[in-house]
Amino acid sequence: MGFSTGAEQFYHGTRADLQVGDLIRVGFRSNYRDGIPMSWVYFSQTLEAAIWGAELATGEGRERIYVVEPTGEYVDDPNLTDKKYPGNPTKSYRSREPLRIVGEVTEWEAHTPERLQQMKDGLAALRAAGKGIVID
């Protein structure tokens, strides 16, 4: 389990329109699965993972990447570390405690439309094969 020391920088990609000081809490719908409330909040120490989070998030809002601060304990995200990237090279985490928004990354480079479509197609294939399950 981890605890923020304040020295790390963490990110959360989404389409939600939030402000500095707001809390991202459990119990709201997933960024990736319509209508399903999540019992964890997800975040990363890499901007790349947050970019994917923003680009793949459902909804109509614009893609946003927030700089966040965990308010409690957090653990490796088993959706990535156990299944796809052993050892957590994406530095992806989750927590049952809120994330406090401390800033927003306003300039970042999006993936090409072709690369984004490849990722969406790959995720759709996983779901179709019954392997697109989020461990919540």
Rank of each mutant, 00 (worst) to 15 (best):
N31Y: 03
N31T: 12
Y32S: 04
Y32K: 00
D34G: 03
D34I: 02
D34M: 02
I36P: 08
I36F: 04
P37W: 13
M38V: 12
M38D: 14
S39I: 13
S39Y: 11
W40A: 09
W40N: 02
V41F: 00
V41R: 04
V41E: 07
Y42L: 05
Y42I: 03
Y42E: 07
Q45Y: 13
Q45D: 05
Q45K: 14
T46K: 09
T46G: 03
T46F: 01
T46S: 07
T46Y: 08
A49P: 09
A50M: 03
I51N: 09
I51F: 05
I51V: 14
W52V: 05
G53Y: 06
G53T: 13
L56W: 08
A57N: 08
A57F: 01
A57R: 02
T58L: 15
T58S: 03
G59Y: 12
G59L: 11
G59I: 05
E60W: 07
R62D: 11
R62H: 15
R62A: 07
R62W: 08
R62M: 01
E63C: 08
R64I: 09
I65W: 00
I65V: 13
Y66W: 04
Y66P: 03
V67R: 14
V67I: 15
V68A: 06
V68D: 00
V68K: 15
V68Y: 01
E69D: 14
E69R: 13
